[in-house]
Amino acid sequence: MANWSDPRPNAAPFGRTFASAGDAARDAGLRSYMLRVYNYMASAVLLSGIVAMLFAAGGRDSLAAQVFVSGGILRYVVMFAPLAIVFAMSFGQNRMSTGTMQGLFWGFAVLMGLSLSTIFLVYSGTSIAQAFFATAAGFAALSLYGYTTKRDLSAFGTFLIIGVVGLLVASVINIFLQSGPMALVISFVGVLLFAGLTAYDTQRTKSLYYQVAGTEYEGKVVVMSALSLYLDFINMFMFILRLFGSSRD
């Protein structure tokens, strides 16, 4: 690595040569790492979408309708199982192997697909498609910003996470209040919070590479980073759908 404080003029060209080679290798490693994260994330979104569509096929006579309308305890298992997997992965990642983390990640994507199948019973296909593509465009722009910006977004992380906790509390309260205006405010704030988290999580994913590159933890970090970005995408999609989606006829 170059010693930029070296006062010897003759040393500079060699320092630049080694620095350039090292930087090129590091940049290539970072690109490969980020590509793996995005591949995992995009594949999980695709898997969830396919499972949701298959589970909701048939409309009111679909498996989704049977489970969520009259499925009893099975409905709650499907709803809360993804959350249980997230907690298991978050708190058990140091004890789990990379293969186990990957298996849980794909299981989580399938279960999320089952949970998301209800949107096909509530919203029109056009609304779902429009919300998805709007989310995809926004996510891409925000993630690009998080990857390229020189501004440190870590200071916003705590604020955003606190905001999500507040959003969850407000959502639970509104389950009992059933307030339409409050639901709109929750959805609008939700879009903003998860838009911010998309940029923040992208920058955090990038910074983690320099800590775990070439270590046994790299594979686990790829999976956990993909999980974070997946959650950002899905939540932003759901809030956009609630804001602008049209009910199914």
Rank of each mutant, 00 (worst) to 15 (best):
A12K: 15
Q211R: 14
A81H: 01
V212E: 15
D152M: 03
L30F: 01
F159P: 04
A141L: 15
I85W: 07
G49K: 02
S5P: 01
M238L: 15
A170M: 11
Y38N: 03
V185W: 10
S48P: 15
L167Q: 09
D61I: 04
T135I: 05
P13T: 05
D27I: 05
L111W: 07
M224D: 07
L192F: 11
W106H: 06
Y33V: 12
K220T: 14
I119V: 14
L160G: 02
L63M: 11
Y200A: 02
T100A: 13
L229Y: 01
M96Y: 12
V164H: 01
D61P: 00
M224N: 13
R16M: 10
S124T: 12
M96Q: 08
Q66C: 00
G166C: 06
S187K: 12
Y230T: 00
S20Q: 07
L168H: 09
G146M: 08
F237E: 05
V221P: 01
T135P: 04
R36K: 14
F176C: 01
Y40G: 04
F120S: 02
A28M: 10
I175N: 02
T100Y: 02
A44W: 02
M112D: 03
Y230L: 13
G92E: 02
K220A: 09
Q93T: 01
G113S: 07
L243K: 03
D23K: 15
Q102M: 11
W106S: 06
F239I: 03
Y40E: 07
L74A: 11
Q130D: 10
Y145S: 05
A12W: 10
M96A: 11
I85E: 14
T149I: 05
V45F: 02
Y123P: 04
G22M: 07
G58H: 08
A183F: 01
M224S: 12
T198G: 09
A136I: 13
R60A: 15
M53S: 08
L153P: 13
G219P: 14
L192M: 13
S115K: 13
A129Y: 09
M34P: 00
V164K: 01
M182Y: 00
T215V: 07
A137V: 14
V222I: 15
L144Y: 07
S32E: 11
S154G: 05
Y123N: 07
L104D: 03
S48H: 04
Y147E: 10
L197G: 11
Y40A: 06
V77Q: 04
S207L: 13
V110F: 08
T198P: 06
G190F: 06
K220R: 14
P7E: 01
R36I: 00
V222C: 10
A12V: 09
V78N: 12
N94G: 10
L227K: 00
F139Q: 09
M79L: 15
F55R: 00
F132P: 00
R204K: 12
M34L: 15
E216I: 02
L160A: 14
A84L: 14
